[in-house]
Design a binder for these strands. Structure first.
Lengths: 338, 338
DNA sequence: TTCCCCCGTCGAAGCGCTTCGACGTCACGT
DNA sequence: ACGTGACGTCGAAGCGCTTCGACGGGGGAA
């Protein structure tokens, strides 16, 4: 194995000089640096990750905690994961994948063995059992999602409450008076998953504020369930003209179901969604939607972490709520004048 | 920070004894071991991962390479990933997540810096550019999927060729004479993704062998495309009575589309699929299918890797093809006697 | 009884890197 | 002309753990 001393010898300098040339932590003359770089290239030198971690007490690895709970939409999770990995690499970090199985003990393990420098935690619940642990760990963490009591933690997410409001406001502005929310599967609410709850809050609040009649329906994510749900919505709210869908797999089948029931979208029924833009835009009827900006969230999460890692944690905001961005597409229209 | 010497002092032994008590690499008397364990518990000791990696030249980390290419079904990928992580943990290893972005350089980096001990590579193409690299790396690897030329590599996967055959054989046995394959998106074939290709081979070979008329249709994975595809199938093969679907997102909408076109499943048309069992079983019409055993594949992949890591690589089989398991459900029936 | 060997433990030598203090040199201000 | 830093480099001391060789003691074989 070729080590830093081999490089040093070849470049005619001391090992510490090679180290400084690599890290830039002390000034190195241009000529020396070039000789070092040449030596590295010629020898194919790669610094040993473990040795580095030991000497510097930095592993340059981030933990990504992905509890794949029932009812969440896997592709969206994957988008987050990919953007976290990509962003981490830009900051010269790698990503260790942790799943639910391990639970809190897993977090503790990777943090306390110094396997990772910091943690990104996904799928946060309102009263998440991991919070006390994260507060006490000696490594910084960022949550993607907001718990009920986020103080002392760094959190980032789309402002799902405002997203719910934005959808309702949009429908209200178009003249709709009776609206419904087709939400995530029931178990997601039972677990008190933060983002789902907040959409409901925003939806309800905005509807009340605008004086709309509204109703919330948690729904299984099976496409086959679409028809039954559509029928139920119409039965319970016969005057329904506006629907907000916060359930990715159901979005397309639901629109199909409405049309099969004789309702044109957006002619008779306006539909908005909270989902990734690619999904909303790719449907047969492109859907007016509030985007879930996974790429941005993942990226900013990593940036917050980096700030905490080298800023010592000062001046890193505790809460980052990304404002919703509603894109109008073909699925919404003004309500027919009665 | 509490180190091994603290534990040693507290237990009244030398650091090396603590190390051996932990690793079991040398016999330690029961009493000593218990004192060491008590000291560890009392002090909350955790061995430093970096120090371990340096001293033992084992990081106990596996790389999981997940190129999220277009056209692949994300939830299935995630199932693999989760099962790899779970299996790795059982063997006291963690998993580092690598995505496409980094490409070959990423593999080289984590391997050569000794960040990982071994690699699990997914989404293998027939002529995968990573193969030469994997062959030359000093760390063992396992591919999930088979390239055209797997010699010198350890590969594992469902036998997709046999899976394609099994579906056709099943249909043939039921008396169907005209069959079609609804496959993955075209880009998957263009990239020569191994598993998709093999399904086609198996499908075609079995159909030829049984003297069936057959046809292959690569298809977009958008549910909205289902209707058009169904119509095309019937137009091109009016006598069609048997369909094999190798495209998860399309499966349910496609069945719906057939029924909307007036064909009862399985009355007029038998449908089989190659997809995860949960999906096939959960549909409105439960579908006869060959399972994609992600959990088993991930687990076995890790086990192969472990065998290579401590067996030195001898007697680890190069190719592991899991035989297809076809489960009959409600979507297939004998062809009506004409 | 004597010899050997295995068991259980210790001490010391690293693993390959980072980092700290030190030192010589050079340019600059006064 | 001389003090003062900043610059560029070096040597050495670890970082916390594993592992190798060594060693005393006890039991079995001869």
């Amino acid at each position: 194995m070729v080590g830093i001393t081999d490089v040093a010898r070849r470049a005619g300098v001391s090992p510490s000089t090679v180290s400084y040339a690599l890290s830039g932590k002390r000034p190195i003359s241009k000529e020396t640096r070039q000789r070092v770089e040449a030596a590295i290239r010629e020898l194919g030198y790669r610094p040993h990750a473990g040795a580095r971690a030991l000497a510097s007490s930095k592993s340059n690895v981030l933990a990504l905690v992905v509890p794949l709970r029932a009812g969440i939409h896997v592709p969206v999770v994957m988008q987050f994961a990919v953007s976290v990995v990509t962003a981490a690499r830009r900051h010269d970090h790698d990503v260790l994948l942790l799943t639910q199985e391990e639970g809190e003990e897993g977090l503790r393990r990777v943090a306390e063995t110094a396997l990772v420098d910091a943690l990104v935690v996904m799928d946060v619940q309102l009263h998440d059992p991991r919070l006390p642990l994260l507060r006490n760990l000696d490594r910084p963490s960022v949550l993607i999602g907001f718990p009920a009591e986020p103080s002392g933690l760094t959190c980032i997410d789309l402002d799902f409450r405002a997203a719910g409001e934005a959808c309702v406001d949009h429908l209200a502005r178009l003249g709709h008076r009776v609206v419904a929310l087709v939400g995530s599967p029931p178990e997601v609410y039972v677990r008190q998953t933060a983002f789902a709850q907040r959409v409901v809050q925003g939806f309800t609040a905005a509807a009340d504020r605008a004086g709309l009649s509204c109703r919330v329906h948690p729904c299984e994510a099976a496409p086959g369930a679409a028809r039954a749900i559509a029928e139920r919505l119409l039965r319970e709210q016969p005057a329904l003209t506006g629907v907000v869908v916060h359930n990715e797999p159901l979005l397309e089948p639901l629109i199909d179901a409405f049309e099969q029931l004789g309702l044109r979208v957006p002619g008779d029924l306006s539909v908005t969604a909270i989902c990734p833009d690619e999904l909303a835009a790719s449907l047969r009827v492109p859907v007016t939607s509030v985007a879930i900006p996974s790429a941005e969230v993942g990226e900013r999460a990593v940036e917050l972490l980096m700030a905490k890692l080298d800023g010592g944690g000062t001046d890193v905001p505790e809460a980052t709520l990304l404002p919703p961005r509603l894109t109008e597409r073909a699925s919404t229209a003004p309500r027919d004048a009665p």
